[in-house]
């Protein structure tokens, strides 16, 4: 039995100026769930995440979070309400140390409430336990870190905003397979804390393995949704590339 989704979009349309990038997207995430969002470059995955977080203008009813219409709120308000994001390309604060990057999230993220159980509250010490290398390099400037370590800082920073839903935009992009494994191995631990995860991925098999449900996007529309382990590769290929490619 599933209750109301913690986060959902309703006929969400958005774009950049005159260019419309999303056409009536319906998307939902339930508490504690891992959802993958797959699709080719330019399918609108990042745009969907950005619209949810208020980085693009949308109407209030288009995004609902914990039962309330929140679409188009300012990004920092969304974050303080409990939607976290690991932005594409990591986007760390250059010129600041690992620890200072994390402390910004502690300072400005959502403040834990009384109904959060103690085990689900992220602290800098818990991030260092999750990614020990960050503890060792806490005083280093972030641009001196390797790509994988930077991605760990980006994930840690997002977790420290105490998200109820964490949107991860291409966290495996540009990383060595070994490092990707290391990072994906941390995801179940994040989930145990009760955080719902949305994984935007280009690597379909990785996305299938890591998630319970998946959505596939093509040209600004959702073309497929279902339980990750029950969808076959051909179905995904059709949704991913469009019917024309699937026939060829």
């Amino acid at each position: 039995m599933k209750a109301e989704p913690v986060l959902s979009t309703h006929a969400l349309s958005a774009g950049y100026g005159d260019f419309q990038a999303l056409f009536g997207v319906d998307f939902e995430v339930y508490a504690g769930e891992v959802v993958a969002l797959i699709g080719a470059n330019g399918a609108g995955k990042s745009t969907l995440l950005r619209s949810i977080l208020g980085l693009l203008p949308v109407l209030p009813e288009m995004v609902r979070f914990r039962g309330k219409p929140v679409g188009g709120s300012k990004p920092h308000t969304m974050v303080r309400n409990g939607i976290g994001m690991v932005p594409e390309g990591r986007r760390l604060f250059a010129g600041m140390s690992v620890e200072d990057n994390l402390r910004v999230a502690v300072d400005y993220g959502r403040k834990p409430e009384r109904d959060d159980d103690a085990g689900s509250i992220w602290t800098i010490a818990r991030i260092y336990a999750l990614f020990p290398i960050l503890g060792e390099r806490r005083d280093q400037l972030v641009h001196n870190l390797s790509g994988g370590q930077q991605q760990m800082v980006a994930i840690g920073r997002a977790l420290l905003t105490q998200p109820r839903v964490l949107l991860c935009d291409e966290i495996s992009l540009g990383l060595a397979p070994k490092v990707v494994h290391e990072i994906y191995d941390a995801l179940p631990l994040i989930r145990q804390a009760g955080t719902a995860l949305v994984l935007v991925e280009q690597d379909v098999s990785l996305a299938k393995r890591a998630s319970e449900r998946l959505y596939c996007m093509l040209e600004g529309r959702i073309t497929l949704t279902g339980a990750s382990d029950s969808i076959g590769r051909d179905t995904i290929a059709e949704a991913y590339f469009g019917a024309i490619h699937a026939m060829a």
């Binding site: 920092h76 994001m85 986007r91 760390l92 600041m96 910004v104």
Partner: peptide, 13 residues
């Protein structure tokens, strides 16, 4: 350093 990344970390730039 990064206005948008700061905003998605809860900072009101």
């Amino acid at each position: 350093a990064d206005t948008e990344a700061a905003a998605v970390t809860g900072v009101d730039p």
